[in-house]
Write a protein that binds this DNA or RNA. Structure first.
Length: 422
RNA sequence: GUGGGUGUAGCUCAGUUGGUUAGAGCGUCUGGUUGUGGCCCAGAAGGUCGUGGGUUCAAAUCCCAUCACUCACCCCA
């Protein structure tokens, strides 16, 4: 019989790594809380239409990467490939705008995209992120950047690069797009085939093409930052001024263009050189047009998303210890059938007292039980044999010191508890 | 979708120009005298050599196909 394997691009998070995940999730929640963001959990799947409308039909995510299938009633549903659209949907559907004029939400969630896996890219992956809905202020943009950086700092991750740009808004982007196309058009046949395709679909993407020829041609290309309307320019200037005030280093990247249709004005990305080709651990920006797109009232919004697997890769590379090893407090060693009959009772008492305790279930020799206790890095071993049974005592061995003492049955729990608090 | 790389024990890997019962280290298990872990010593278990064909007296080794994993492109976290 052939063993069934997991689906390509998915991962089992094994017991020895779960501690890391829990520690990271805890740190994220703590920092989010400090910044006064509240957690929102949405379903794992949504109507396909939500993403088609929210993210944009022409994006790669929607056109070729979504896990979409009909349910039993033939309605198309999609495993969520990103969180911004579901958050916005929940905000509108639950009328969260009625609770307060600014809504600050965060999430930690598994997401799904049917791409070919590679380093730092999975089909089921995890992101945490935050969204501020209802605030148009550039300070809200800066808060997002500060928040994501605070989380990395709390985890001890360093060596990150923050890149920012502005992609304009409906007042200035269409004109810029034409200017850009006019510049490119005479050279279009010199660009790579991907760029020639992008020319009609999404010309701004041509700017961040990694192809050498293309990037050389792009050097002379008009930059959006030089073609912003007054409002966008002011917004962008204020973001930069505030970042400087907060002493957050950044580099302006005129070629930074986020892939999703809904972005307006500020976009940013945080990268690490500890990663492979997929070097972004965080991406975000402003999306003032999404709420209307999803049938809500116009609502200015800004957010970011960060890949947890990629973040863990960076942490790993930097040798960070995110979670302490969970050691066993007590291992109960029993010798002989009489003692073996009794230790179930003591196991129960110790655990009821909150002491992390294990025993042997295989009827193994004392030596084997001691080896097991050692392997589990147990702090104390309690030995119950014939002698102990006859005298109503346990022999207690300190596995670090190697010293052994005796404890009467009726003093066992308080004595062990006392030892463990030291 | 496209391209490169890799598939031998639970893990990391050896395996010569094709040539006996396919090896090592680590890990696991059991011992090293009556009831004691870590170091050391001894032993054991564990392999359809990814899978299916082909060439050959003989294939882990050569050829073809296929699958899986992996890295990269596109794109993104």
């Amino acid at each position: 019989m052939e063993a069934i394997r997991r689906i390509k691009g998915t991962q089992d998070i094994l017991p020895q790594e779960v501690g890391k995940w829990v520690a990271v999730e805890t740190k994220i929640r703590q920092t989010m809380n400090t910044f006064h963001f509240e957690e929102l959990r949405t379903p794992i799947f949504e109507k396909t239409e939500l993403f088609a409308r929210g993210i944009g039909q022409l994006t790669d995510i929607v056109s070729k990467e979504m896990y979409t299938f009909p349910d039993r009633s033939k309605k198309l549903i999609t495993l969520k490939p990103e969180m911004t659209a579901p958050i916005m949907r929940a905000y509108i559907e639950n009328k969260l705008y009625a609770l307060s004029s600014v809504t600050k939400l965060f999430y930690i969630a598994p997401l799904f995209r049917q791409e070919n896996p590679q380093a730092g890219r999975l089909r089921q992956f995890h992101q945490f992120g935050a969204e501020t809905l209802g605030a148009a202020s550039p300070d809200a943009d800066v808060e997002m950047i500060a928040l994501s950086l605070a989380i990395y700092k709390a985890l001890g991750i360093s060596g990150l690069t923050l890149k920012i740009n502005s992609v304009g808004d409906p007042a200035c982007r269409p004109a810029y797009r034409d200017t850009l196309k006019n510049y490119i058009r005479p050279h279009l046949n010199e660009y790579c085939s991907d760029c020639q395709r992008r020319f009609d679909e999404n010309p701004m993407r041509i700017l961040d093409c990694k192809n050498e020829t293309c990037s050389r041609l792009n050097e002379e290309a008009p930059k959006i930052s030089e073609h912003l309307c007054d409002d966008c320019q002011t917004h962008y200037d204020q973001v930069k001024a505030q970042l400087q005030k907060l002493d957050i280093p950044f580099t302006e990247d005129p070629y930074l263009v986020r892939g999703l249709d809904y972005y307006t004005r500020t976009v940013f990305e945080i990268t690490s050189d500890a990663l492979g080709a997929q070097n972004a651990i965080c991406g975000g920006g402003r999306y003032d047009l999404l709420a209307e797109e999803l049938g809500g009232q116009p609502t200015p919004a800004v957010g970011f998303a960060s890949g947890i697997e990629r973040m863990l890769m960076v942490a790993e590379k930097q040798g960070l210890i995110l979670a302490e090893e969970n050691r066993l407090d007590v291992y109960l060693v029993a010798m002989g059938t009489d003692a073996t009959r009794e230790i179930g009772f003591w196991l129960h008492q110790l655990r009821a007292a909150g002491i992390r305790t294990e025993r042997d279930y295989l009827g193994r020799s004392m030596k084997a039980q001691m080896r097991e206790a050692n392997k589990l890095k147990t702090r104390y071993v309690l030995i119950l044999g014939e002698d102990e049974l006859n005298n109503n005592i346990f022999s207690l061995k300190d596995m670090e010191q190697g010293e052994q003492s005796q404890i009467p049955f009726n003093e066992l729990i308080p004595t062990v508890k006392n030892l463990l608090t030291k």
